[in-house]
C-alpha cells in the first residue's frame, strides 16, 4: 500500500483516545501533588517538573482529540473512503494556534468519552454534514476546521475521579528498561492489569523506627587501644572539636570513647568497649538493638525517631578539652555522679 492509503481500526483509536485522556487527567492531578509537596517543604524553587508534566498532559489530550477526530470521520464514512483534513486539523490542535482553554479541554474530554456521540451533528471530528438542510459552514484553510464547531454544551465540570472503560487489548506494554530504543517489529505481552495506571496514594511512613531502621549501618569494633586492631585504621580522635560553624567534628565524648577504632565517627559508651557493634553511619550512633543490655538505658529515641543521647547517666563528667591520659574506664563508669560535686568539673584523670 502506498503512503496515501489509510486504514484505521476505529475501536482501537477510540480506546487509545480514552486512555490518553485518562492519562492527561492523571498527570494534571500529579502536577498538583507535585506542587503541594514542594510548597510544604519550602522547596517551591524545585518545580522544574511541573511545566513538563503540564506539557505532557496537554499533549496527551491533543493526541486523544486528534485520534477521535479521525475515528469519527472514518465511522461516518462507514467503510467508504472518507475525506479528512488531517493537516488542517493537526495544525489547529497541535500548533500554536491550537492552544486549548480549560473549557475546551473539558468539552473535548467529554467528546472523547462520549459513547453516544452524534456523528451527523457537524461537530467534533465529523466531516461537514452534506445531508443537512442548512449548508455546511465554510472552512477556511489553516483554521481549525471541525473542532471549534462542536455543538454539545460543555459539562459543568470534569470529575477528577471519573472512571473509564479502558480498552485493555490496546494497552501495549513493554519491558521496564528505561530509555531503551523500541524496535517497531517486536511482539509485546499485554499485561491488562497494568493498562490502568495506579492511583496516586500519598506515601506514608508507618513509624519513625521504620525510617531509622532503614538507615545504613556498619559494624565497628570498639575497644581499648591495647586490644584494638589498629592496623590500617585512622588514629583515635581524643578530643571533641568544633568547626567554625559550631558543628561537632569527629568522635565526641572525650576519653569515654578513647580507644574507639572506626572509620566512621560514632558516639559510643564504655559499655560498648570490647565489642563489635552496628553503627548508624549517618547519625553516627550505635544502633539500639546492637548496643543491647545496659546500654539501652542511655541510648533512646524520641517519638519523632530522633536520637536522644547517647548519655551515660552515671558517668563522671570531664571538663573540656580532655588531655590524653590513661584511665580506668570501668572504675570511672562505676563512680556515681553524685560524687561529682560542683568542684568535680575538674578533670578526674589529669
Amino acid at each position: 500500500m502506498s503512503d496515501d492509503t489509510t486504514f484505521v481500526n476505529v475501536p482501537d483509536l477510540r480506546g487509545w483516545a480514552k486512555t490518553w485522556d485518562w492519562m492527561s487527567t492523571h498527570l494534571t492531578e500529579q502536577e498538583k501533588v507535585h506542587n503541594t509537596t514542594l510548597i510544604g517543604l519550602d522547596m517551591s524553587l524545585w518545580d522544574a517538573a511541573a511545566a513538563e508534566i503540564d506539557k505532557a498532559a496537554g499533549e496527551l489530550l491533543r493526541s486523544g482529540i486528534y485520534t477521535t477526530f479521525v475515528a469519527n470521520a472514518a465511522e461516518v464514512a462507514d467503510g467508504g473512503e472518507y475525506t479528512v483534513d488531517h493537516i488542517g486539523f493537526a495544525t489547529a490542535i497541535f500548533g500554536a494556534g491550537g492552544a486549548l482553554s480549560a473549557a475546551d479541554e473539558r468539552v473535548y474530554s467529554n467528546a472523547i468519552n462520549d459513547d453516544d456521540r452524534d456523528l451527523t451533528g457537524g461537530g467534533f471530528g465529523a466531516p461537514p454534514p452534506t445531508t443537512f438542510d442548512a449548508p455546511a459552514p465554510p472552512r477556511s484553510v489553516g483554521s481549525r476546521p471541525d473542532a471549534p464547531v462542536w455543538t454539545t454544551a460543555p459539562a459543568a465540570s470534569t470529575p477528577a475521579d471519573r472512571a473509564f472503560d479502558v480498552d485493555t487489548a490496546d494497552a501495549v506494554l513493554q519491558p521496564r528498561v528505561p530509555f531503551e530504543p523500541t524496535p517497531a517489529d517486536r511482539v509485546f505481552d499485554v499485561d491488562t492489569t497494568d493498562a490502568v495506571l495506579r492511583p496516586s496514594v500519598p506515601p506514608s511512613v508507618t513509624s519513625p523506627d521504620a525510617v531509622f531502621e532503614a538507615r545504613p549501618t556498619r559494624p565497628v569494633y570498639v575497644g581499648l587501644p591495647d586490644d584494638t586492631p589498629t592496623d590500617h585504621l585512622p588514629p583515635v580522635d581524643q578530643g571533641r572539636t568544633f568547626d567554625d560553624g559550631g558543628h561537632i567534628v569527629g568522635p565526641v565524648l572525650p576519653t569515654l570513647e578513647r580507644g574507639v577504632v572506626a572509620d566512621v565517627p560514632a558516639y559510643v559508651s564504655p559499655g560498648d568497649l570490647g565489642r563489635t557493634v552496628e553503627v548508624d553511619v549517618v547519625a553516627g550512633v550505635v544502633k539500639p538493638d546492637a548496643a543491647g543490655g545496659a546500654d539501652e538505658r542511655v541510648r533512646t529515641f524520641d517519638d519523632g525517631g530522633h536520637i536522644v543521647g547517647p548519655v551515660l547517666q552515671d558517668r563522671p563528667v570531664f571538663s573540656h578539652p580532655q588531655v590524653d591520659a590513661d584511665v580506668d574506664l570501668d572504675a570511672a563508669s562505676a563512680e556515681p555522679r553524685s560524687a561529682a560535686t560542683s568542684e568535680g568539673w575538674v578533670n578526674r584523670v589529669s
Partner: peptide, 19 residues
C-alpha cells in the same frame, strides 16, 4: 511508546504523522 508502536503496526494513513 507501546501505544505508538502498536499504532504504527496496525494503522495506516497520513494521520499517523501528526500523531
Amino acid at each position: 511508546d507501546g501505544f505508538m508502536d502498536r499504532a504504527l503496526l496496525t494503522q495506516q494513513g497520513p494521520f499517523l504523522g501528526p500523531l
